Computed example of a mutant assay.
Amino acid sequence: MKQVLSDEQVKAYHRDGYVIVRNFFSAQEIGKLYEVAIDDEQMRKNALDLNDKSGFKTKLSLWFTPGDDVYGLATRSERMIGGAAQLLDSDSPVCHFHSKLMQKEPKVGGAWEWHQDYGYWYKNQFMFPDQMLSVMLALTIANQENGCLQVIKGSHKLGRVNHGFSGEQVGADMIFVENALKTMDLVYVELNAGDALFFHANLLHRSAPNLSDYARWSLISCYNAQSNPAYNEKTFSYLTPVEVVSDSAILDAKDLVGLSENTDLLKKEDDPALKETGWEEEVETN
């Protein structure tokens, strides 16, 4: 696997919990991705609406097995897998846990409360958070006006923070978040279409509602090292090494398609993160 990230980018990820890679995908590639996404019937039919604590809705569609559709060609690309391999704390093959299309529509797109991805994935009983990460690929511009991601720099070093329910979402204990904000820097992750953000499973992050006049869409792919077991996960993509495709796959494809009817999309009632375990009542999320 070729080296995708520089030594300085790898060092920044381990120090800060994230690294931004500008122009990770070309404008032409992003144009093709977005064009398919906005007309994807399966994506639209299977989108989950998750209310934030203020009642605004955030829409996402989540699937596990990456296919030969346009999203699969992106998530299986050599640059995505090579970058993940450089950052995961394991020498075992990179596997695809899931991908999701985040759709924050103008004026109505809801917030994501403060959380760590491992705050969700802990309920799947993944063992090693250092062997998991996410890559957010911006399909549209993301800035403070349309509710871009906010991160607490270096917060991945805190370990897992307790999480409870905040609206229909899972949110981090706000007492701990407020202490983190007194100690570490808050960063607004402003991205142009085609920029990518690699971030650690324990990085505290949130996003505000989209009250602007334009949408904010992103593709987020979550990767797991094959050496990292999960004892409460019924799907198997997280243990299946990715079949890597060329970085030119999107531009080389004659026909680009969206999700098929056979795609293993997540249903809200099947998500372990949204099921009560008992400890959530002890967490202050407001």
Rank of each mutant, 00 (worst) to 15 (best):
A273S: 14
L256H: 03
I141A: 13
G278S: 04
D247Y: 05
N192G: 15
F198D: 08
T140N: 14
E269N: 09
A273E: 11
D252Q: 13
N228Y: 01
V161S: 09
T277C: 10
N192E: 15
M174L: 12
Y223C: 02
A273N: 09
F198Y: 14
W279L: 11
F165N: 08
S166T: 10
G258Y: 08
D264E: 11
Y214M: 12
H200L: 01
T263F: 05
G164R: 00
D255R: 12
N192V: 03
S166W: 13
E243T: 10
D264W: 03
S246T: 08
V257G: 09
I220N: 12
T235N: 14
V135T: 09
L274Q: 09
I152C: 04
I175C: 09
D255H: 13
A201T: 00
P229R: 00
Y238M: 03
D195F: 01
E261G: 07
G194N: 02
S166D: 13
S166P: 00
I141P: 10
D271E: 13
K234Q: 13
K254I: 09
A208K: 12
K182G: 12
L181V: 02
D213G: 12
T277P: 03
D255T: 14
S218Y: 02
Y231L: 07
L266W: 12
M136R: 11
S134N: 08
I152L: 09
Y238I: 00
L211N: 14
M174F: 07
I220A: 08
P241Y: 01
S218F: 04
L181A: 07
L197S: 10
F176L: 14
S207I: 01
L197D: 09
T235S: 12
A249C: 03
L274H: 12
V135E: 04
I220G: 01
L211W: 10
L211F: 12
H163Y: 06
A193E: 08
G167H: 08
L251S: 09
V244E: 13
N262F: 14
L219R: 01
E276Q: 12
S227N: 03
A201E: 06
Y238K: 05
V257M: 12
N179Y: 10
D213E: 14
L181D: 09
L181N: 07
N202A: 06
H156D: 07
I152N: 05
N224R: 02
A142Y: 06
E269W: 01
M184E: 08
S212C: 05
V177H: 07
L265F: 15
Q144K: 15
S260V: 00
L259V: 00
M136T: 14
E145W: 01
N192Y: 11
R216Y: 04
V187C: 03
N179L: 12
I152Y: 05
N202P: 08
A201L: 05
S155F: 01
P272F: 03
V189D: 10
N192K: 15
